[in-house]
């Protein structure tokens, strides 16, 4: 075991993993995290805590993860390279391990232009692939990026993200290979709506043999309203929502139920794709739908390892 995290045990045990997302509050209340943790804990193997997602200031991912650990939940600490240089990054990693965090997801982060401090200076001292490699070096060689020794172990299960729907399509697999080569143990993808395109991407992933080297969890975002569907189709970079999904929601009597049905259909199809080892449910501001989806998708009970 690289980290001994629950997520690692589930994936290495060959189970189909389920993870979900906990967005921290724009404030100081631990109970926001606790409530979401309570809702999700029995239905997921690990919970991601986002890191100032869309560049909006929120409680730090590290703190959110610690609150979840106290509840007996295995957190995935998300870390973006937008806001920290290599000094702060490595320092936060040491602290995260000391506080019991065992999964780290490495991301570039949305540009600050989208957030609530658009005049901020970004950092991008290292990029997400270099972050993966840095964490691997810290874990496997017990060395900092500069080559100096780290005292103690750095047991982390290293995650990265990939967006199969970004451009250039054929290059995305080469980039995924770089993440694997850098040391990613698991991948959580951008939300899948266009399953056909996702399946084509997975075919390329399998051609490269990457599915044997890394656990790929497909991302899904349940859609709650027609407005959300349109917004994601038109405004969220890197997400491709086919028009037929928008139309189905527009025509539905019970939009939320239709949204759940669409999500279940997507999960059903994703489960059939060779090389997919789990699902990552990002139910933004709709956490209480995750148990419903997990139940109806036949993903329960979660393994206790």
């Amino acid at each position: 075991m690289k980290s001994g995290s629950n997520l690692e045990k589930v994936l290495e045990g060959g189970h189909f993993a389920v993870t979900a997302e906990v967005g921290p509050p724009k404030g100081t209340s631990a109970s926001v995290i606790q409530k979401k943790g309570d809702i999700l804990k029995s239905y997921c193997d690990a919970l991601n805590v986002t890191d100032n997602q869309t560049a909006i200031v929120r409680m730090s991912s590290l703190s959110g993860c610690v609150i979840l650990i106290r509840m007996g939940i295995d957190p995935v600490m998300q870390m973006v390279v937008r806001d920290r240089n290599r000094i702060a990054i490595q320092s936060d990693i040491l602290g995260a391990v000391a506080l019991g965090i065992r999964n780290l997801l490495c991301l570039s982060g949305d540009h600050q232009k989208f957030g609530n401090h658009p005049t901020a200076k970004n950092v991008y001292d290292i990029d997400s692939i270099q972050l993966v490699k840095t964490v691997k070096t810290m874990r496997d060689e017990k060395k900092f990026l500069c080559g100096e020794n780290i005292s103690g172990e750095v047991p982390l299960f290293i995650g990265a993200v990939e967006n199969p729907f970004a451009d250039p399509f054929e290059y995305r697999v080469i980039r995924l290979a770089k993440k694997v080569q850098a040391g990613a143990d698991f991948i959580q993808t951008q939300a899948v709506y266009d399953v056909g395109k996702f399946a084509r991407w997975m075919e390329m992933v399998r051609d490269q043999g990457l599915d044997k080297q890394v656990h790929i969890l497909a991302g899904v975002i349940p859609i709650k309203s027609v407005g959300m569907a349109r917004y994601m189709r038109d405004n969220v970079s890197g997400v491709s929502v086919p028009n037929e999904i928008v139309t189905r929601l527009e025509d539905a009597k019970d939009v939320k139920e239709e949204g759940v049905k669409i999500t279940l259909e997507i999960i059903e199809q994703i489960k059939e794709i060779d090389g997919i080892h789990g699902i990552h449910i990002m139910a933004v501001a709709w956490e209480d739908i995750v148990p419903v989806i997990a139940e109806r998708a036949g993903l329960l009970p979660r393994p206790i390892l």
Binding site: K113, Y124, S128, I129, E162, D167, P168, R175, S237, G238
Partner: peptide, 28 residues
Amino acid sequence: SKSIMNGPCGGTSDGKCEISQDVDCAWY
């Protein structure tokens, strides 16, 4: 826009950068 060395990041779409449709994605 992120000065990354191993791009393109997940924000590129139709050869454009996530920050604006007027900005070409350098990595594309």
